[in-house]
Design a protein around this nucleic acid. Structure first.
Lengths: 343, 343
DNA sequence: GTGAAAGCGCTAACAG
DNA sequence: CTGTTAGCGCTTTCAC
């Protein structure tokens, strides 16, 4: 679109008005020291008067860079956008990007067509790098992009050793949660998993099993109910568990939102929490402080993870590549009220 | 950055390899019908082989448009990013934008410097339009941008008749909520407001007063406690109310997250909800289904609002301006368990 | 310190 | 249907 009203002045006009050359204007815009004080003053005056703003496309074209990075969220199931985890993560990313003078473009391919467009966009030289969130196992997009020379970092498990990532130790977090349940004297501990197409959910499941084994408890597939990070589905999962194994006394749920949903189902079944069934969630999002009783959960530094992802990417961009880095944050158990020792 | 590995082929090279001119390549890229089948085939073949992807900056420069719009969130308090309302809204915006083949760049100026950068970015001809969210009363940024010829739509109250907006009837929503409390026979109804620097919170407060007046109840400033859409602050607000007016029997809270927090405080004080104190929230976000008892609230079609904002903006961009449009969605009372008739 | 000039990669008339 | 030719607005050598 060309907007009559908004016809922006160009560097040429500024130069003419200031009685200097384009080059000089360009120099003052870019803060070059090789400009006389008088010239600088004249140019700045004109810039202010005509409200000149450089055209980004032209600048990017000439400089061959854009100072923008993409955040890619393949979220067909619309899971991520509903979860406080994501909001918090995105908050951290935006903050970190801003600190590095990088712009953020949000890509959220919903359809096949969207995805093609997104890929083309990423490769179109329009971004300096990309952050992937919510990846599913086997997704080769980060790697393909990386192979084209675009710096990439993924939040979550690295799909490839060459790809930098920032993650939380999901397995350890789940182990912490489940071990806590074991320590509470719980003997039949079930779990509602996250979306198992993703590594994080797999890891949390593994951590759950680790703790069970370490506690001398049997690992029983019947106690493992697949969830999807979707609270609605968690309701069904909880009902299923209760029906199949009415005598469970412990439950580890792979996210707080799902845990909150499961908590309700269990309470509605007439069981007391934490006395009859103890529950531990994951994330320590705001909802953990909204349930009754308050949710025991595993905290992960979501916002910090987002910030770190941004910083990592900024580093990669600045270094023009360099060795991949893998940073993993430590989870921490937060004991609240949904877990207690068996009497 | 120039990435050696990623040195993208240009349209020139494709043309040479395919034995045609740049123009022809450009035509097939842009889907022009004026290309022979053979030429098209040859070009497409080469494009696929060398993995050619057009450079966006060059294209934008030549076409003088970018197909991207900005979503601006002046969120110094970090309120919005924590609220499910925002996540849902953003989900709607991204979906709507995608439908219109528009890219989204997220601008979240946190500091003065960020803000200057953001303004420059917006005026730099890099975006086709902008959506503002979470505006504070008196913010002239949308108008200033609009005056430069950039299409603008704000989510929330229109800061100016010339600016298009999409909103929910906040006043009516709050009236609905409070009238419901009145109908429940509640006689001393307090409120925890949102951030009063924003219009939405002001409107919700007005709606609360409307309903009180209509119900023959006194409007008492002592029953109006300022909040900030922040659950932490809501805890303090609730405590303050209880201390100041121990005999309240109804409470309207301007957001679900705050309501959930207030609910806890009230329960912890030994009061029964809904019997002693009935509570109504606002938003009908996921947290309303996580509290115990379930939260009675006012639903606003958050995702649809986001979608509409995107569509509105797309229309404005396509029409090259045109008359401003103001679309307001109707709120709806959702009665759950935190409200009940007085016995 | 400053200007002239040559592109950056692509689109868009304009001929043919 | 296709090629030629100008730019789009800015950065960047390279002389002066």
């Amino acid at each position: 679109m060309i907007h009559e009203a908004g016809r922006n002045p160009t560097i040429q006009e500024v130069a003419r008005l200031a009685g200097v050359s384009q080059s000089t204007v360009s120099r003052v815009i870019n803060g070059s020291p090789r400009v006389s004080a008088t010239a600088r003053a004249a140019v700045e005056q004109v810039i202010a008067r005509v409200e000149y703003v450089p055209n980004n496309s032209a600048r990017n074209l000439a400089q061959r860079h854009s100072d923008t990075v993409a955040v890619v969220i393949p979220d067909p199931a619309n899971r991520l956008f509903g979860d406080p985890f994501f909001a918090s993560l995105l908050g951290g990313i935006t903050a970190g990007l801003t600190d590095n003078d990088l712009q953020l473009v949000l890509l959220r391919p919903l359809s096949q067509r969207d995805d093609e467009r997104a890929q083309a966009y990423l490769r179109g030289g329009h971004v300096e790098g990309a952050i992937f969130v919510g990846l599913v196992i086997g997704d080769t997009r980060p790697r393909r992009l990386f192979d084209r020379g675009v710096p990439v970092v993924v939040v979550g498990s690295a799909p490839d050793p060459a790809i930098s990532n920032v993650d939380c130790d999901n397995r350890e977090g789940a182990r912490l949660a489940t071990a806590h349940l074991v320590e509470c004297g719980r003997l039949k501990i079930a779990t509602i998993t996250g979306a198992l197409e993703g590594v994080s959910a797999q890891e949390r499941l593994a951590g759950y099993r680790d703790a069970l084994a370490a506690g001398g408890l049997e690992v029983d597939p019947r106690l493992e109910v697949p969830g999807d990070y979707d609270p609605e589905l968690a309701v069904e999962a909880a009902k299923l568990i209760l029906q199949r194994e009415p005598d469970i006394d412990g439950l580890f749920v792979a996210s707080d939102t799902m845990a909150a949903a499961a908590l309700r189902v269990i309470q509605d079944s007439g069981r007391r929490v934490p006395e009859d069934v103890s529950i531990v969630g994951f994330d320590d999002s705001a909802v953990a402080r909204m349930t009754r009783p308050l949710l025991t959960t595993v905290a992960q530094p979501t916002e910090a993870m987002g910030r770190e992802a941004a910083n990592l990417l900024a580093g990669l961009i600045g270094a023009g590549g360099g060795a991949p880095r893998h940073v993993v944050f430590a989870p921490a158990l937060v004991v609240r009220e949904t877990s207690a020792a068996r009497l």
